[in-house]
Design a protein around this nucleic acid. Structure first.
Lengths: 245, 245
DNA sequence: GAGTGGTCTAGACCACCAA
DNA sequence: TGGTGGTCTAGACCACTCA
């Protein structure tokens, strides 16, 4: 790869190309979550580029939390199984900042079919099989989040209420371990809503109480949407944290 | 700077030290918002380091939106004045994604004194002078956000309702242009609340309607808090966007 | 001490922009 | 055509981890 000149209309830096190759190896399962990938020098010689170029590709993936660098140890494939990373997508924290114990109670797990909205979200045919989970998240003994989760059935064959309970409600960890689906990114849309009777009862509130509604779509490699989720949160003692730069 | 060995307990990379020097020049006013800073090569020779090291320092500042790189042109000090950057901290968007016209109506601008809460937020003495602004933000003709803004009076001497209206409510742009205070970062805490009578009237709602409460603290260089803000938002047709990685 | 990521350099060359 | 940021290299050395 000593040819550096490039007159093509769509110029792409070498490190971006390396990044694509690395991502393909991740998708292809050459390196699994939690495992160490080859050293920078090994990768450089494999792809016939300099260490610095591999380094930039890895930097980029590390910035997206797809890889994790550990000085002196190596570079690892990120995983949702680790403690500390488990709640990566949970931005809700206690107002007083104290540490909390999270528990969750499965309300139900059913099969449904995609309506127009869900088919558009998941980019699948209307009528395709879906799995739907409802649960209650409790912090320090108090019910705080009413969660409604929808996923396409095809990639999660065999997922049912028993499986969810076996995994203690760690959905992302379960997707990864049991189905090889790793979520790398999510988008959330927040609004304020009034509690309806179903939710009010579950959270032990009056109907009409204000709740923070968090609608989330999670994506796996290639920006493929794999989970839709609606969390209705009581924010009397908690808030959603967001950093702006 | 050819000595590279370092046995001191608190090791700091060279590019971090350069970053501090660059930041000091920004604080000191050597380069003003919107202006171009010296080229990487010039800076490298000024600090007696290689271009790559200066580059890494600038990369870091660019990542924090403090500097802006423009290939072929130069590196510039970020500003809140530019169109497109103006609403950098506004994450509220229309549900249908359409472009909107923002207007705002000043309700009042008064002087008060810091209570314990504000003194702790701004790290100043209780009783210190504050300026308080209340306003209504309107998108496409519909009142959507009831804003309550508090800033310490000392750095913003002379700020009053007239000034605010002269600047058409672009607070960040005004802070920067008229007082040399550039906000570089903010933290937001979101909750759902019920509208009280004052807000309900301003937003033309029923008392008790759910509103998205956005509490924001904005920071200038050195992580110094310079503005507190509480926005109460109607989220019938809008939502707050958040990206998780 | 061997292996890994992290820093730093010096230099070459490319892509982009403006005059 | 000259200046700026952006890429890429080859090599040296440092800091960290673990056996």
């Amino acid at each position: 790869m000593t040819d550096k000149a490039n007159n093509s209309p769509s110029y792409k830096p070498l490190y971006d190309q390396i990044k694509v190759l690395l991502t393909q190896s991740l998708i292809g399962g050459e390196w699994h979550p939690g495992e160490m990938i080859p050293s920078e020098i090994d990768l450089a010689s494999r792809y016939k580029v300099s260490q610095g170029t591999v380094r930039k590709a890895i930097d980029s993936l590390a910035g997206e939390n797809i890889l994790i660098r550990r000085q002196g140890k190596g570079t690892f494939v990120a995983t949702h199984k680790e403690e500390g990373i488990k709640l990566r997508f949970l931005r809700l924290t206690a107002a007083n900042g104290q540490k909390e114990v999270l528990q969750n109670e499965l309300l139900n797990c059913t099969k449904t079919k995609a309506d127009i909205r869900m088919s558009s979200i998941f980019e699948i045919k209307a009528g395709a099989a879906l799995i739907e989970v409802k649960r209650l998240l409790t912090f320090s003994g108090r019910p705080l989040i009413y969660d409604h989760i929808v996923i396409p059935a095809a990639p999660f064959k065999g997922l049912n209420g028993t499986r969810v309970e076996e995994n203690k409600g760690s959905m992302y960890s379960m997707y990864e371990t049991e189905y090889g689906v790793r979520m790398i990114r999510a988008e959330e849309r927040l609004t304020a809503v009034a509690a309806n009777s179903e939710v009010a009862e579950a959270l032990n509130l009056k109907v009409g109480s204000p709740l923070l509604s968090i609608e989330r779509v999670s994506y796996t490699y290639g920006d493929k949407p794999m989970e839709w989720r609606l969390g209705l949160c009581l924010t009397d003692d908690h808030h959603y944290m967001s950093e702006l730069e």
